[in-house]
Amino acid sequence: MGFLSRLKEDIANARSHDPAARGNLEVAVVYSGLHAIWAHRLTHQMWQHEKLKTPARVLSQAARTLTGIEIHPGATIGRRFFIDHGMGVVIGETAEIGDDVMLYHGVTLGGRSLEQVKRHPTLHDGVVVGAGAKILGPVEIGQGSSVGANAVVVKDTPADSIATGIPATFRHRSPKEHQPAVDPAEYVDPAMWI
């Protein structure tokens, strides 16, 4: 996918997730979550080359200063990723994020080890993580799952689950919860399960 096609996809994705979005230009200019993702795409490419790792870190820290969102250049992020009200989001070096994932503000995808191993979470396709949630360690959040606001997840969560609490426990979605909601805010807001 070309650069411009990816930008258009990102803008359309942001508009589909935020009913307050009034136009493509506004989204492109003022959405700090998109700016952080775009900066990450550049720094992630730089991170693949040993001589560019330090400049990649410098650029990622500049993006952090401008957006309030810290994404390590080593993190792997899929398509149509959206960060809503991103202030305070932290995504660690070995984090892996699938396609169609959404994070709210204050989310941490952090590590629990200082060893040079996979130490950050993996979020599979279609995961939604509520405001203030912490997902720590090399845990996996299964496809289509949601993590409630302020949850602290330290264990794997299977696909189509809802994780809430400190430490988080999960339950599988009921058949009713697989039906699209009439109100789009209910569909994407994990806080409704608290």
Results as ranks from 00 to 15, higher is better:
Val90Tyr: 12
Glu115Thr: 09
Ile97Asn: 02
Leu52Gln: 01
Arg79Thr: 14
Thr65Asp: 12
Leu66Arg: 13
Val117Ile: 15
Val128Phe: 08
Trp47Gly: 07
Lys51Asp: 12
Gln48Trp: 00
Lys51Ile: 15
Gly126Tyr: 09
Tyr104Leu: 15
His72Gly: 11
Lys51Pro: 09
Gly86Phe: 02
Gly74Trp: 08
Ala133Leu: 02
Leu109Val: 02
Thr65Gly: 15
Ala62Pro: 03
Arg80Phe: 01
Ala75Pro: 00
Val89Leu: 12
Ala62His: 14
Arg57Glu: 06
Gly68Lys: 08
Thr76Met: 12
Val58Asn: 04
Arg64Glu: 01
Asp100Asn: 14
Glu70Met: 05
Pro55Cys: 06
Met102Ile: 06
Asp84His: 06
Ala131Asn: 00
Thr54Leu: 15
Thr65Ala: 15
Ile135Asn: 06
Lys134Glu: 10
Ala131Lys: 00
His49Trp: 15
Ile135Met: 01
Thr94Leu: 08
Pro55Lys: 03
Ala95Trp: 04
Gly126Pro: 07
Ala56Leu: 00
His124Glu: 15
His72Phe: 09
Gly110Arg: 04
Glu70Gln: 05
Gly110Thr: 13
Lys53Asn: 06
Arg80Ile: 01
Ile135Phe: 01
Ile77Ala: 13
Leu66Ile: 12
His124Arg: 15
Thr108Glu: 02
Gly126Arg: 12
His72Glu: 07
Thr94Pro: 07
Thr43Met: 01
Gln45Trp: 15
His124Cys: 15
Pro55Val: 00
Lys53His: 07
Ala131Arg: 00
Gly88Glu: 11
Glu115Ala: 14
Leu103Asn: 07
Arg112Phe: 13
Ile69Trp: 11
Lys53Ile: 01
Gly132Met: 09
Gly130Tyr: 08
Thr76Gly: 02
Gly74Lys: 11
Ile83Leu: 02
Val107Glu: 06
Ala131Glu: 05
Met87Asn: 13
Glu50Lys: 12
His105Thr: 14
Ile135Lys: 04
